[in-house]
Amino acid sequence: MKRGILLIIGLLLIGGLGANALQQMLELEENGVRNADLYYNIGVGYWQTGQSGMANLYFLRSLNLNSAHKPAKENLDYVIALSQDKDLYPQRPFLLRIFYASYDFMNLNRMAVLSLILFALTGLCLHWLLHYDPLKERGLPTLVFVIVLLLFLSSVGFLGSKAYRQQHNNRAVLISARVDLRAGASMGAARIAVLHEAAILRVEKREKLWCLVHSPDGKRGWLKNEDVAWVINPAR
């Protein structure tokens, strides 16, 4: 009897150890854990099970929390390069790519620290300017103060923008294999384009059963909600 119980316990342990890693990570997410590495690993797990749409969704979720998550960015680019809709994505000029790379490198936390440093610098420059010897020319401290102030205001602007986008990310991913983008919110509406799994969309409006989206090449049309997964789940 004892041996039987021990055998059952042993089997349960072995089964537990061999449980799907993806399932475990999804359970963590279900429990409310928000972590860029967790999302990234879930994305890789989905890719390994052949679900490129869900993989892209989780890479985007990872980047939503940490825009400087380099592995997630690289894997997202990789999945896009393999998708059927890869030609729909715009090719950005080199300088614009540098700007976006810099913008992504400055994730929300880095931008917050930068804003704090610039705030301190602005305060110091203001102090220097206000307590500057009145008998001397004030050109230099004024110039430095204005430059630092502009930098500070820019960083605060970017910080606000990033914080807002993190909370209100309007991107979504197509999770069905092949879907028609339609001119209206009905199956009888004219077909505008054909989109495939893993296409990244920008959601403009969401209704009960349909949502108005923009395809990667800018086409605007309606898709069924069941074909789309949101980076920020509106149900949450």
Binding site: A21, N35, Y40, P71, A112, A163, Q166
Partner: peptide
Amino acid sequence: TLRPMLSRPSYPQYRSYL
């Protein structure tokens, strides 16, 4: 290639500095 999973002992809850 697709980069592999990251080895993490735990996944701390994300909270931004803000």
